Simulated assay, not measured.
Amino acid sequence: MTKPVYLDYAATTPVDPAVADAMVRHLTMDGVFGNPASRSHGYGWQAEAAVESARRQVAELINADPREIVWTSGATESDNLAIKGAVAANRREGVRPHIVTSVIEHKAVVDTCAWLEGQGCDVTWLVPDSTGAVAVDQVEASLRPETLLVSLMLVNNELGTVTDVGAIGAMLRGRGILFHVDAAQAAGKMPIDVTALNVDLMALSAHKVYGPKGIGALFVRRSTDVRIDAQIHGGGHERGMRSGTLPTHQIVGMGGAFEMAGAGLDEEMGRIESLRDRLLSGLEGLDGVHLHGSVTLRVPGILNLGFDGVEAESLMLGLRELAVSSGSACASATMEPSYVLKGIGLSDAQAHSGLRFSLGRFTTEEEVDFAVEQIRLVVTRLRERRRASA
């Protein structure tokens, strides 16, 4: 291999070449470069048409109305807008707002909810089961009269575990409680239907779906029951929910990426599942390998594996020809054990041994076989070195 095999698709995906080509056509003077908010000339009208076409493409992947898609800079902003915006719009005088979430959510949700705790909100931090799933009865038991929002992710970014948000959403809808779902790791990896899932707010990201970084969206269900206050002000764009000049080229990129993901979803899921099984079967016979998360309720492209007697950081250093991660890219600056793995009940030692392998559109069988060879080689070498120094 001339360069490291990329197995970190959960951190980010490369932009699909067809998406990149479409973006370039919306950047320069001979393309559609205008400001979508410029309503007095053709350049603006063309840009607005491109933005609205992309809005439809994003909406179609999750079975939403295009008018329910609000452009943001990414899933992190979408999570912030949904959670902070819901609290700001729905808190009642003299009542301390209550939010329900889990200890293994993405940092964009964890840190936002922790910040709101400091602003006078109560937060219930649910602990998932050993697979990383939160059950509907857990959520129901945590509800209070002052609960205004529940925030849970559809697919965990470190484990790949899928939570039954449909059952949770149905229960919450009957109680009039807003339901926010981070679907950054689910879009393009599994079918999504916001109506069937009973979701009020859903965060989406382009760069997890072979689109560009710096652009995302928030689904906001069209209903008088769903109210959020803007967190960025200055012009009242996006129906007053998110101000700022729209980046036409990035939006076009997200729309194109989501359309491609929808068109090839079934085939891609089957191909990735086959590659996943190839990787796991290749590691059979290597003792002390553990799959973290659900065995069955998961997206196929994310695998978190633990290796007894081997720290993930040491393993990554040894796997110089593979691009993998020891957890979320948003938490990789710390040497602390993964809070997600700790959150599902693993010890510090077990959490330190977890390594995330994520497969994607451009992963090949040859790359998977090479990865298996390297993992077996390095794990065996590290264990022998540890035994020799004991």
Rank of each mutant, 00 (worst) to 15 (best):
M190L: 15
T334P: 02
V155L: 06
M202R: 03
D277F: 10
G306A: 09
E311R: 15
V95R: 14
E273H: 10
E68L: 00
I251Q: 12
P145I: 08
G132V: 03
G318D: 10
V289L: 03
T131G: 11
V194G: 02
G160D: 00
L126F: 12
L126C: 08
D21A: 15
G94N: 11
L341S: 03
R227K: 12
G235N: 05
H290K: 08
D348S: 09
I302G: 01
T245C: 11
S142N: 09
R387K: 12
R276F: 09
L341P: 02
A49S: 15
R56L: 08
G293W: 05
L280T: 09
T72G: 03
C121T: 10
V289A: 02
D129I: 07
S73I: 06
L283N: 05
G288Y: 06
E238H: 12
E259C: 04
P36R: 05
V109C: 08
A37Q: 06
R385H: 07
R55P: 04
S314W: 03
V368T: 08
G318W: 04
G235T: 02
I228A: 01
G262W: 02
G306P: 08
G244V: 06
D348H: 10
R173C: 02
N156A: 07
R91P: 05
T76C: 11
L275T: 06
W71T: 10
L126W: 06
F179D: 01
V15L: 11
V5G: 08
S325T: 15
N157H: 12
R298W: 00
L154K: 15
V87E: 04
L317Y: 09
L341Y: 04
H352I: 05
A331M: 13
L303N: 04
E284N: 14
V220W: 00
L297V: 04
D369C: 01
G288H: 13
D111H: 14
P212Y: 00
A230R: 13
